[in-house]
């Protein structure tokens, strides 16, 4: 079984309630680490424009590059539900190793501002999962644009579309997310992309 997300891009209004709900639940301070980021893709030229938001998180890939890259085996993929978890005690820390962040196509591994920060990221709210609850972001979405659960169930419910504006599907990693994409029939040119919270350089 593989857990994953569904994101209805047609409904996301970029309110970022999911971002802050996640930070609150996992007690992640303001700073470089954020398990969720929303990127906003602006397309077209005035006045013919369109805007597409994308939910960015760890997508608990079927073939996670981070697991393969970690030199100390701190990142593992759970057999029972495919959730990719990190053992922060084992992680070497930002000062010594940066491999997971470099190989992840989705910028999922996060490091705080503290010295030699250990990697942290979305772990599908394991504590909530144990109580049969969905990840905190799902219930935080004021547009009800998010869902989470076994990816096969999500595909059955919402379809198996794996492409959307602002997302690049990695054949190699096989991310566990499906979309209701917001289409741009006119094929407008991307004018800018805004990521929030901003990534530190």
């Amino acid at each position: 079984m593989q857990m994953g997300f569904f994101f209805d891009q047609t409904l996301c209004v970029n309110c970022r309630a999911c971002v802050v709900a996640c930070k609150d639940w996992h007690n992640v301070p303001a700073g470089p680490a954020s398990y969720i980021r929303i990127s906003t893709v602006e397309k077209g030229r005035y006045p013919d424009v369109s805007v597409h938001s994308m939910f960015g998180s760890c997508y608990h890939c079927a073939e996670p590059a981070c697991v393969a890259a970690c030199p100390v085996g701190a990142i593992t993929k759970r057999a029972e539900d495919g959730i990719v978890v990190v053992d922060r005690e084992t992680c070497l820390g930002k000062g010594k190793c940066d491999l997971c962040r470099q190989v992840c196509p989705y910028d999922a591994p996060q490091f705080g501002a503290e010295p030699n920060a250990r990697m942290q990221k979305c772990q599908f709210c394991l504590d909530r999962l144990a109580e049969n609850k969905q990840p905190i972001c799902v219930g935080a979405c004021i547009m009800q644009a998010l869902d989470a659960g076994p990816i096969e169930q999500l595909k059955a419910k919402y379809g198996d579309i794996i492409q959307a504006e602002g997302f690049s599907y990695s054949e190699k990693a096989v991310p566990s997310i499906v979309f209701n994409p917001k289409k741009d029939a006119k094929g407008r040119v991307v004018s800018r992309i805004v990521v929030s919270p901003q990534k530190s350089q």
């Binding site: 309110c15 970022r16 971002v19 639940w25």
Partner: peptide, 23 residues
């Protein structure tokens, strides 16, 4: 220590991003 919002019967009165940062 944490903030949750309405997870009961629908329609739910889910709070906004500011409510999420209430603490």
């Amino acid at each position: 220590t944490r903030v949750e919002t309405d997870d009961g019967e629908y329609p739910q009165y889910r709070c906004c991003v500011r409510g999420r940062a209430f603490r």
